[in-house]
Design a protein around this nucleic acid. Structure first.
Lengths: 140, 140
DNA sequence: CGACAAATTAGACTTCTTCTAATATATTGA
DNA sequence: TCAATATATTAGAAGAAGTCTAATTTGTCG
């Protein structure tokens, strides 16, 4: 009774998305899509890949993160100026962000509800609602 | 029956915040704090200042925007990667953001209500809740 | 006014990200 | 399987946003 091979899962997901399963993409997909939800930056993932012995350039990491985002394997989160986070949790959810530590924590969408949403500006439709709860150490 | 001189308003607000009213700060304060609510970037405001004949360096514009934010004359909004917006509306509010045009529109906080907020991570307290409603052209 | 603290500045620098054009790799059809 | 073709990858240059530094200028206060 083995679990399904994780790498074949990555492979399937790449194929399903219409992305050629190259060595680099496959390796990055495995790093990103196996295991729990994660928040990575490009530099961050590049370092991790190198440490894992995967030979991949930073440019490819950027390309891959954007492609994965386009096909819905990742979500991009804008939290801090000058730095993009990519989130492996693609379900509808929001974030706690601790400004002191830079830590990001998911909040499943069903835990939150927003009411009183005004109509979007004329001629536009809502694509997504992002809620970021900024916290800092302290309190009770 | 004149309105109160706008520049003396800017002056008062600078003094109240404990910031020396230098030529540059005063001029930027007038650009920012007179007239309606605005969303500016540093480059953006710098260009506007130059166009208005105000001699000020980009470094000072950055310094000033950050100082104004610290003392509560502005609010910083993180919306797009690689670019910070400063918001002259310091009241509690949220945003519509149109990804196609880059336009940002305020939503007064009293129009929205969020319920089901989970407790913040242990040892932290909530500093602010940011809601960004991303829209795109289209829809009915 | 004169002295001192604070602000401004040009330009170098850092960081994050994108671009470019050369090379390598996957895929397809015969 | 192999060649032909389309697609990816790459190093390094280039770009954009923002910060820093050390020298100069400007407010402030006695």
């Amino acid at each position: 009774m083995n679990k399904a091979s994780p790498s074949s899962t990555a492979l399937r997901r790449l194929r399903a998305a219409g992305l050629r399963p190259t060595r680099q993409r496959l390796a990055l997909a495995r790093l990103l899509l196996e295991g729990g939800d994660r928040h990575v930056t490009a530099e961050n993932l590049h370092g991790e890949a190198l440490a894992a012995g995967i030979q991949v350039s930073l440019a490819t990491v950027y390309n891959t993160l954007h492609q994965f985002t386009e096909v819905g394997l990742l979500r991009e989160a804008m939290i801090e100026p000058g730095r993009s986070y990519f989130d492996t949790n693609t379900a509808d959810h929001h974030h706690f962000f601790c400004e002191a530590t830079g830590e990001l924590q998911d909040i499943p969408a069903q835990h939150l509800s927003v009411s009183g949403l005004p109509a979007p500006p004329f001629g536009t439709e809502i694509r997504r609602v992002d809620i970021i709860i900024r916290v800092r150490p302290g309190g009770v």
